[in-house]
Design a protein around this nucleic acid. Structure first.
Lengths: 206, 206
DNA sequence: TCCAAAATATGACAAATGTAATTTATGAAA
DNA sequence: TTTCATAAATTACATTTGTCATATTTTGGA
C-alpha cells in the first residue's frame, strides 16, 4: 500500500510514517504539511490512500479533499484529526472522504487503512455514535427550564400532532376549556403566541 | 480473533467460516442460523465480533443486535446483507452496530473485521455514500403533485414560521381575507384541517 | 381591443382559539 | 380539623381561523 501522509505537525507525519512502514505493509513515498502539498503529492504519487490532517494552516484537509475528489473521484482519502467536530463529520461525509480517524488511535490506523484499501469506509466509533443524533436528532428537548409539567407535556405533544383542543380533551378526558387553559399557560411559559408556533417549536427541538 | 457467524443460508456460514479461518487470523467457534442462535451463541462464546445476517426467518439480525447490545453494550456486531436498505442502515446505526457489510464483498470482510476489532466502525462505501443524503435530507419537498403555486408556497412558508393571517397579509401586501382564502385552498389541496397541521406537514417534509 | 383566466377582495358566518377571572374538588400537610 | 396547593372545570369574552359564495381587478394572450 502506498500512503501519502499530510499533517502540519512534522512530528506526526514522521511518527506515522515510521509506524506504518515498520508494519512492512505500507510504503510512504512522501509526506506533506498542508492542503496544497496534499494535492500536489496526491497527483505526483497517486497513492492508494491519502491520509491527511483536517486542520492545517494554508489549505485545510477538507478543501484539499474536495479538490482532489473533484479531479479523481475514486481517490481514497482518510481524514485525521485530534478532536471531534460535528461540522467536519458531516462535511467530510458529504465530500466523499473514506473515513475519519483520531490521530491518537495509533493502533487503529493500520487496520483502518487496510479496510479502506479494500474498499470500505472507516470511522471511529465515537463518530458513528454521533450519526444517529445527526440523523434523526431526537435528543429529547429539555423543557425543565420552562417549568412544564407532565400534563402540559402531553398537551404539547398532542398539539404538535395537529389535534384540535376538542380532540385533545377527548383523548385526555378533560373538558375542552381545561385544555384551553393548559394551552394558554404553555404558550405563556414558552413565550409563544399560538398553537402553530408551539408545534413549530416542538419540531425545531425534536 | 474469535468470530461467531450467523446466517440462515448454511452455504454462506460455511463459506465465510472457511475463508476466515484459512486466513489464520480468525477462529470461528460456532455458526448459527437465526437471531435466536445469535443471542445464544454470543452469550456462550463471547466472540470478539458477531457477524450476522440482517434478514432471517425467526428473529432478524437487527432484533438480535438490539438484545445483545442491551445486555452487552460493548458487543461488536457487524451486519451482513445482500442488498441495501436505508431503513436498515439508519436502524443499525441507531442500535450501535459496528458496521454494515455486503456479503458479496468477500475480500472486504477480513480487513473490516480487523478494523472493527481494533475499535473502528466500518461501512461499505455504498452505504456511506447514502448517509449525506440521509443527513442532509433537504430534498426540497416536491409539492408538484399537489398543484401548489408560488403564492401558496409563500403562504405555506409563512404559516410554517408561525405567522398569523394578519401578519402574513401585511408581509405579502394582501388583504387578510385573501390570505384566509389561500390558506383554505392550501388545506384543501393537502388534505389538512388547520394551519398547525400545515406547519407540521411542512416540517415533516423539510 | 376584448376576453377569459388568474389573482385578489369582500362579507357573512360558524367554529376554534386564546385569555382571564373565578369556582370546585381533592388530597396532602400542618 | 383547618389550611394549602393543585388539578380540573366553568363562564364570559375577544380574537382568530376557516369556509363559502360572490365580487372586483389584473393580466396575458387571441
Amino acid at each position: 500500500m502506498n500512503i501519502v501522509i499530510i499533517d502540519d505537525d512534522k512530528l506526526v507525519t514522521s511518527a506515522l510514517k515510521a509506524i506504518l512502514e515498520t508494519s512492512g505493509k505500507v510504503t510512504v513515498p512522501a509526506t506533506g504539511y498542508d492542503g496544497t502539498d496534499a494535492i500536489e503529492l496526491y497527483e505526483k504519487y497517486q497513492p492508494d490512500i491519502l491520509l491527511t490532517d483536517i486542520q492545517m494552516k494554508e489549505k485545510s484537509g477538507l478543501e484539499a479533499t474536495e479538490e482532489i475528489l473533484k479531479k479523481y473521484p475514486d481517490a481514497k482519502i482518510l481524514l485525521l484529526t485530534t478532536f471531534l467536530d460535528d461540522e467536519y463529520i458531516v462535511t467530510a461525509l458529504k465530500l466523499g472522504a473514506k473515513g475519519y480517524l483520531l490521530k491518537s488511535d495509533y493502533e487503529n490506523i493500520l487496520p483502518s487503512l487496510e479496510a479502506v484499501n479494500s474498499g470500505q469506509s472507516v470511522f471511529g466509533t465515537e463518530i458513528i455514535s454521533k450519526i444517529p443524533t445527526l440523523l434523526n436528532a431526537s435528543p429529547k428537548f429539555d423543557y425543565s427550564e420552562y417549568d412544564i409539567n407532565e400534563r402540559e407535556l402531553e398537551i404539547i405533544e398532542l398539539v404538535s400532532n395537529g389535534y384540535s383542543n376538542k380532540d385533545i380533551s377527548k383523548q385526555l378526558f378533560l373538558s375542552e376549556g381545561t385544555v384551553r387553559n393548559y394551552l394558554s399557560s404553555i404558550l405563556d411559559k414558552l413565550g409563544l403566541e399560538n398553537r402553530t408556533q408551539l408545534a413549530i417549536f416542538y419540531y425545531k427541538h425534536h
